[in-house]
């Protein structure tokens, strides 16, 4: 465990709290992509299958895994019940089928081992790398976002971005290298680069998030 990884995980945790806080404070899920949330739930359910047999790994990992699965399920529940009036299927239209299909194909082509767990793990890593696309696509269609929503997206993107120095650290200092996670993590961070740029040049300077 190193600092980058802890900061990454904390950033991930913070992003979830910001999202729940956004819905509570605005009493609405406007601007949030239900499709992206459903993809994340698929990511966590397929990657964290091992909570049922790796209790010994660490209490930290197991509890974080449970928190990610439960909080995302809870978010989807809220979006589909309490806040469903703000859902706009006309805007949230990204073809998620291709993302799931592409991740499935990569998982079958490049798992570390041909076991159900390893293929699902690889699937979750590839799917996570593109799960934000419906959300970013929605942002592009509306052209603007509430500030709290941009904080959520920043924290979520920072999580994988912070894992990159963690992987470098582990590669040099521990001889640990995980090519699938690293390549997918870099792709994931690149997908955020436009968003990060606008967040930095506008939101952090007190302006509203608006696309040029």
């Amino acid at each position: 465990m190193n600092l980058f990884r802890i900061l990454g995980d904390l950033s991930h945790l913070v992003s979830i709290f910001i999202l729940l806080q956004k819905m509570r404070s605005t009493r609405s899920c406007a601007g949030i992509s239900l499709r992206t949330q459903i993809l994340y739930l698929m990511v966590y359910c397929t990657r964290y299958l091992d909570i049922f047999w790796t209790f010994n790994a660490s209490l930290y990992n197991s509890s974080m895994k449970l928190v990610f699965i439960l909080s995302t399920a809870y978010t989807i529940y809220l979006m589909r019940t309490v806040y469903k009036t703000a859902l706009d299927p006309q805007i949230d239209t990204f073809a998620t089928y291709y993302l799931v299909g592409g991740a499935g194909l990569l998982a079958v082509l490049f798992p570390y081992k041909y076991t159900v767990y390893e293929v699902l793990w690889s699937f979750s890593i590839w799917l996570e790398s593109v799960a934000i696309l419906p959300q970013l696509f929605m942002l592009q269609r509306t052209g603007e976002a509430e500030t709290i929503t941009t904080h959520y997206l920043f924290a979520l993107g920072a999580y994988r971005a912070l894992y990159i120095p963690n992987w470098l650290y582990r590669w040099f200092l521990e001889g640990h290298f995980d090519p699938i996670a690293t390549v997918a993590g870099i792709i994931q961070t690149l997908l955020y680069s436009d968003f990060f740029y606008i967040y930095y040049t506008k939101v952090l300077k007190g302006k509203k998030f608006e696309l040029p």
Binding site: T54, F68, Y112, W121, G175, H176, F177, D178, P179, A181
Partner: peptide, 10 residues
């Protein structure tokens, strides 16, 4: 050979 000692990351 790549080294993956289990998936210990989140």
């Amino acid at each position: 050979e790549h080294v993956v000692r289990g998936h210990d990351e989140l």
